[in-house]
Design a binder for these strands. Structure first.
Lengths: 196, 196
DNA sequence: AATAAATATTGACCGTGGTCATTTTTGCGA
DNA sequence: TCGCAAAAATGACCACGGTCAATATTTATT
C-alpha cells in the first residue's frame, strides 16, 4: 500500500466540509441539509455517507472544531480570581453552545462520547475542557479540598444544567450568567468565604 | 360549549396511547414507529398528529408518566442519612433514565421545558423532582449553608453528567453509582466531615 | 327534523436522512 | 500499455416523520 487514503478522498472530504461550512455560515447549523451540501460539493448523495457515518457525524466534527477554537481562547486566560471572572472567561464558549437549540442538542448528545467506542470531536473537546480548566481552578482562590479535575467536571455539569434551563423560558443572557455564578459560588468557593 | 373535547377525541387519544405503550413494552422506546402505532390504534396517520404535535410529544408524555411513577417511590423514601443512601434511593429513577440511549436523549432534550413556552410532562417531572428532593436534603445530615432547592438542582445536574459519561464506555452500573456518590460527597457534605 | 358551524378523521403526498448494487476511477504489476 | 483488483463515487430507491385539502362526524340552533 502507498497511502491509506487516496488524495481524491481527501479532496472530496475537504469539499464536503467546505460546502457544509458555507451553508452554515449562510443559514444556521439546524438548517443544514445533506442534499444542499452534496449539491454544492458537486458529488452524489451516497458519497457523503461514504465520508461521514451520518449527518450527526458531520455536525460533531464541525461543532467540535468551533468549540476547540473557543477553548483555545479560554486556555489563554489567566486563572480566574473569582467566580465572576470564571463566568466571564467561559462566556464565548457558553454563548456558542446556546447559539442554537439544535447545536446544544447535538453537543448534549455527543458530549459523552456518543454511544460509540470511538471518541468523537465534541467529546474530545470536553476532555480537553476538563484538562484545561482543572489547573486553572487549582490556581484560583477556590476550595482546595477537592480534586481539581472533579471541580472542573462540576463546572461542566452546571453549565449544561444552566443552559438547559435557559432554553426554557427565552430570557436574555443575564439570568444565565447569574445562575452560573450562583452554582459556582456554592461549588467552588470554600464555605465561610462570605464575599461572593 | 359543553366540553372542550368530544368523547370521541378522548377515546382516540386513549387508543393511541395504549397502542404506543404496547409497542414499547414489546420492543423499546427507540423502536417505536408512528405508523405501527396508528395501525394498532386503527386510525389514519394524520389523526396521530392531530393529537400529538410530533412523535417527541408522545414520548415526552409516555416517558414523563413513567418517571412520575418512579418519583412517587422516591417521595416515599425517608430522608437519606448519607450520600450512599441518596444514591440508592435515586437508583430506580436513574436506572430508567439510562435504560435506553434514546430515552436519555429525549429526557435531556425535554428536561428544560423543550424550547416551547408550554411546560411538558418531562419538564414537569423535573420540577417535581426539585420540589420533592429539596426538603429531603434539608432534613438529611448535609450542608446547611445553601438553599435546599439549589442543592437539589445540583443533584440533578450531576445525575445528567454522570449518565452522559456512563453512556460513553459501556461499563456496568458500578462506576455510575460510585461517580454519583463522589459528586454528592463534594456537593452535599459539609467540608471537614472526613468520613464518606 | 333540517341546517349550519365546529370539530375530528382521512390518506395521498412530501422532505429528508440514509442504503446499496452498480459503475467509474485509481494504483500497480507484468 | 494493458489488464485487474481495490477504492471511491453514483443515483435510484427506501423508511419514516410530518402536512394538508378534502371528507365525515358531532354539536348547536331554529
Amino acid at each position: 500500500m502507498t497511502q491509506p487514503v487516496q488524495t481524491r478522498t481527501l479532496k472530496t472530504r475537504a469539499r464536503l466540509l467546505e460546502a457544509a461550512r458555507e451553508v452554515i455560515s449562510e443559514t444556521s447549523h439546524g438548517a443544514l441539509r445533506v442534499e444542499e451540501v452534496v449539491r454544492r460539493a458537486g458529488v452524489a448523495k451516497g458519497t457523503f455517507f461514504a465520508h461521514f457515518k451520518d449527518k450527526d457525524a458531520l455536525m460533531d466534527r464541525l461543532i467540535g472544531e468551533r468549540m476547540d477554537l473557543l477553548l483555545s481562547d479560554l486556555e489563554a486566560c489567566p486563572p480566574p480570581q473569582s467566580t465572576a471572572d470564571l463566568v466571564r472567561d467561559l462566556g464565548p464558549f457558553v454563548a456558542f453552545m446556546r447559539s442554537e437549540r439544535y447545536v446544544f442538542d447535538v453537543i448534549l448528545r455527543y458530549s459523552g462520547a456518543a454511544a460509540r467506542e470511538e471518541i468523537g470531536p465534541i467529546a474530545a473537546t470536553f476532555e480537553r475542557f476538563i484538562l484545561l480548566l482543572a489547573p486553572k481552578l487549582a490556581a484560583a482562590p477556590f476550595r482546595k479540598d477537592a480534586d481539581p479535575a472533579m471541580l472542573a467536571e462540576g463546572v461542566q455539569a452546571f453549565i449544561f444544567n444552566a443552559l438547559g434551563l435557559s432554553f426554557c423560558a427565552l430570557h436574555s443572557d443575564d439570568p444565565l450568567d447569574g445562575r452560573l455564578e450562583a452554582y459556582f459560588d456554592l461549588w467552588l468557593l470554600p464555605p465561610g468565604g462570605a464575599t461572593a
